[in-house]
Amino acid sequence: MKWLQIALVRLGLRRSGEDARKTVSFGDPAAARGGYFWSFVSVAAVFALWYVATALQWTTPIFLPPPSDVWEQFHATATEGFRGYTLAQHIGVSVYRLLVGFALGCLIGIPIGFSMGLSRVLRGFFDPIVEFMRPIPPLALIPLMIIWAGIDDKPKIILLFLAALWIMVLAARSGVQSIRLSKIHAAYTLGASRTQVLFRVILPNSLPEIFTGMRVAMGVCWGTLVAAELVAADVGIGFMIVVGGKFLETGLVLVGVIVIGVIGAAIDVGMRKLEARLVPWKGMG
């Protein structure tokens, strides 16, 4: 019965250790940790509700097609494709745009954030630009992007780049400024040069906040992606959703939405794993 016990603990159905003896659990963070069983329940509940609602014809298929139709739609787009591209190709193009835009945002945003965290001149210089650009939703820039950059991959990538850029600038800046002065002082008394202080102290110290910024930026990029593919696109998950909406092919829209949700969640889980590996000291300083 030991395996059962282990399984129950893993699923969050049974408490172990000191947690099992606590008389006060309301408000204790440990009381809200690891309820994986209930995650299965929630997924199952959503599908069940979806199935029941369509089977009992509470709605019309145009409003909400049954799960089986969506599965068939998924299968069709995956094998036959949609508008000349298979589902995998649509996903590939979207993820390519997403990753290039996001990577550019990190590559340019992090050094700018660092310079703002390290120099009064650069802080003052970049501050108005960042503060002005940050609140502008990327969607508002779509017309400009099309006028300036045309209708191929470029405007979409630039839009995603801008979505990630300001978030990464701010994350890197606050990462730099979160350091304890005594760490910097310690490095100098140990004989470190400015370059050594930058790469061996300031940079690693800011990694936890940069990681948090990357996860936020990744989320915002997904949100921007569909919008970026709204206009003048002929391939991509966002494009698929938009066309599906235009022709009332609700199944197609749902396929796109589910695919985005699953990939987005998978990337976030991956980033969290990477974070736990690369910055295990996060929150322990």
Binding site: R180, L190, R200, P204, N205, W281, G285
Partner: peptide, 28 residues
């Protein structure tokens, strides 16, 4: 480097092991 300093807690480099912290000065 001829004037070393020991701070109140929080001046160690959390991203390094104990050994790497101690080797920091020599490494520099």
């Amino acid at each position: 480097r001829e004037r070393g300093m020991v701070f109140q807690q929080g001046a160690l480099f959390e991203w390094m092991s104990v050994a790497d912290n101690i080797a920091f000065g020599p490494r520099m």
